[in-house]
């Protein structure tokens, strides 16, 4: 039990049939999440972060579907479960928090009723016990006067308060894993830190693991234990957060870090990666990053790189392949 990771994603492929062919927003992504761990999932918009989250919890919008790989929760496969069994896992064992707290709550239903229905869907408790737990949850996420606010409607809460309610809803049935899809993007900067701290505290107290989907490197640095970098639906690099952030290996991660402003570096000039992420319809042959990579070698245009250990992390880049290392690095020099 202890050596089985809480969540194992291997070679996950998500495909969408469209008129011109088949799009693949998630392409052979694999990672693990251990109990109580916080894994960051970073990447540009369209890199497949949210789609990964949706695939794990089984909420990919039709006509998209998982066409390859598997998702295991505590060792059991969950990606091929019948809808009704998957529904019992959602909210109970894996919960999800979405980006916009303003639209995540049904405006016509009191927050109390939304909490009670979630609790009673997953736990065999009476209505009054569920109501009591709903108030306790609201208190726990820091809603003042929870006993009266439980009967309020979502529009009577501010944005930050609503995201607290959303967290309470996600935690209602004590899930083992929370997928937080950009939980603070829609909030004021001042509130963002509070919500992140709250999420971190609640999960630590309950031993719940988190997959934090974000494009904010600051949030990644402060919050996560490990980080996975996605590019055009593929995993570029995954490893301990400190290792990936301080000594990134994949050229894309290197570029990403260089384009993140820091207080210690040069504040006047912010470097950027030339070009933009390829459209899903036009992913180049070989490495998806080859068009923008300054160090691409011949092989990068031929074969898709596979994840290999580099220092503390795992990196999908031919530059670290022993064969390439010997004949290229000595010519071009190491990372700048």
């Amino acid at each position: 039990m202890s050596d089985t990771p809480l969540l194992q994603v291997s070679d996950l492929i998500v495909e969408f049939p469209v008129r011109q062919g088949v799009l693949r927003p998630v392409d052979r992504v694999g990672f693990e999440v251990r109990a109580g761990e916080i894994l960051g999932l970073v990447g540009e918009s369209g890199a497949g972060k949210s789609m990964c989250g949706a695939a794990i919890i089984g909420l990919i919008e039709r006509p998209g579907r998982i066409t390859g790989g598997e998702v295991r929760l505590n060792g059991e496969r969950i990606d091929n479960l019948p809808e009704d069994d998957m529904r019992r896992i959602r909210g109970k064992r894996i919960a999800m928090v979405f980006q916009d707290p303003l639209t995540s709550l049904n405006p016509l239903v009191t927050v109390g009723r939304q909490l009670v229905e979630t609790i009673r869907t997953h736990l065999p408790v009476s209505a009054s016990e569920a109501q009591r737990r709903a108030i306790a949850l609201l208190e726990e996420v820091g809603i003042p006067a929870a006993a009266t606010r439980v009967d309020a409607y979502p529009h009577q809460f501010s944005g930050g308060m609503r995201q607290r309610v959303v967290l309470a809803l996600a935690l209602a049935a004590e899930p083992d894993l929370i997928i937080a899809d950009e939980p603070t993007t829609a909030l004021d900067v001042s509130v963002q830190a509070q919500i992140m701290a709250l999420l971190k505290r609640l999960c630590r107290e309950r031993g719940a693991a988190v997959i934090l989907i974000t494009h904010d490197m600051g949030v990644i640095a402060e919050t996560t234990d490990r980080v996975a970098v996605l590019y055009a639906g593929r995993l570029a690099e995954i490893g301990p957060t400190r290792a990936v952030l301080s000594s990134p290996s994949h050229p894309y991660t290197v570029g990403l870090m260089a384009s993140t402003p820091s207080t210690t570096g040069n504040l006047n000039k912010l470097s950027q990666i030339p070009g933009s992420m390829p459209n899903l319809r036009a992913i180049p042959k070989g490495c998806a990053f080859n068009q923008r990579c300054g160090k691409a070698v011949a092989r990068c245009f031929e074969d898709i790189p596979i994840l290999e250990p580099v220092r503390d992390s795992q990196v999908a880049c031919w530059l670290y392949d022993p064969a390439t290392l010997t004949n290229t690095l000595e010519k071009t020099g190491a990372t700048e």
């Binding site: 919890i57 909420l59 529904r87 019992r88 896992i89 959602r90 909210g91 109970k92 919960a95 999800m96 979405f98 916009d100 639209t103 995540s104 709550l105 049904n106 405006p107 016509l108 239903v109 229905e117 979630t118 869907t121 997953h122 959303v166 809803l169 996600a170 209602a172 049935a173």
Partner: peptide, 26 residues
């Protein structure tokens, strides 16, 4: 198609509860 229906699904509510408890009212 709204977010709160997606969130209701992510909370594991039954299809019935989503259709008749949430969507119909709205």
């Amino acid at each position: 198609r709204t977010d709160y229906i997606r969130f209701a699904r992510a909370r594991g509510l039954s299809q019935r509860a989503i259709n008749f408890g949430h969507a119909m009212k709205n």
